[in-house]
Amino acid sequence: MSTKRLMVIGLDGSGKSTLADLVEGGESNHAHREDCYYRERCFEVPGRYIENHWMHSIIIMLAQNQASSMLMLLDGSTCESFYSSGYARAFTCPCLGVLTKAPADADARAKGIAKLEAAGCTEILCVSTETGEGVGELLDWVAARM
Score class of each variant (00 low, 15 high):
I50F: 05
E51F: 01
N52H: 10
N52Y: 10
H53T: 11
W54D: 12
M55Q: 11
H56F: 02
H56M: 01
S57F: 08
S57T: 05
I58Y: 10
I58L: 14
I59P: 05
I59D: 01
I60N: 09
M61D: 15
M61N: 14
A63Q: 13
A63M: 14
Q64H: 13
Q64C: 02
Q64S: 14
Q64T: 10
Q64M: 00
N65I: 05
N65M: 09
N65D: 15
Q66R: 11
Q66P: 02
A67T: 02
S68V: 07
S68G: 12
S68Y: 07
S68K: 11
S68F: 07
M70P: 02
M70H: 07
M70C: 05
L71R: 01
M72H: 09
M72I: 08
L73E: 00
L74D: 03
L74I: 05
D75S: 11
D75Y: 13
G76S: 09
S77Q: 15
T78Y: 05
C79G: 05
E80N: 13
S81H: 10
S81T: 14
S81D: 03
F82M: 13
F82V: 01
Y83P: 10
G86N: 00
Y87F: 15
Y87E: 06
Y87Q: 02
Y87D: 08
A88T: 03
A88Y: 12
A88M: 10
R89T: 14
A90V: 01
A90N: 14
T92M: 12
C93S: 06
C93H: 02
P94S: 03
P94L: 13
P94C: 04
C95H: 10
L96M: 10
L96K: 01
L96T: 06
G97K: 10
G97S: 03
G97P: 07
V98A: 06
V98G: 03
T100A: 00
T100R: 04
A102M: 00
A102C: 13
P103K: 00
P103D: 00
A104P: 06
D105F: 08
A106M: 02
A106H: 09
A106R: 03
D107I: 11
D107E: 13
D107P: 00
A108D: 12
R109N: 03
R109M: 15
R109S: 12
